[in-house]
């Protein structure tokens, strides 16, 4: 779940930036990383495609997700 990881990292960055013991250079590096993660998270949110499907086991250990409204 890269989305969740991205958001967790964003939260870390936000709280790091709120600390005072950060140099300007560190702050700017974090800011750049934060903006990148923000873009990734937003992009992933946009590409989410919801559906209702059914999990079907074809053979032992082989699964297929078939579109089928329940």
């Amino acid at each position: 779940m890269t989305f969740e990881k991205n958001l967790e990292r964003l939260e870390q960055i936000a709280s790091s930036l709120d600390r005072d013991d950060l140099s300007l250079e560190q702050a700017l590096t974090l800011f750049e990383e934060g903006i990148a993660k923000l873009k990734e998270a937003s992009a992933e949110l946009a590409k989410a495609e919801g559906r209702v499907a059914k999990l079907v086991e074809k053979a032992e250990g082989v699964f297929e997700v078939t579109d089928e409204h329940g």
Binding site: L17, L24, L30, I35, A41, S42, L45
Partner: peptide, 21 residues
């Protein structure tokens, strides 16, 4: 809520950096 959360995070990061600068 997720979108608002992401926006708020972005705002927080932006304003914290601005403040720092």
């Amino acid at each position: 809520d997720i979108i608002a959360g992401i926006r708020a995070l972005g705002e927080g990061i932006r304003s914290a950096t601005e403040l720092r600068v």
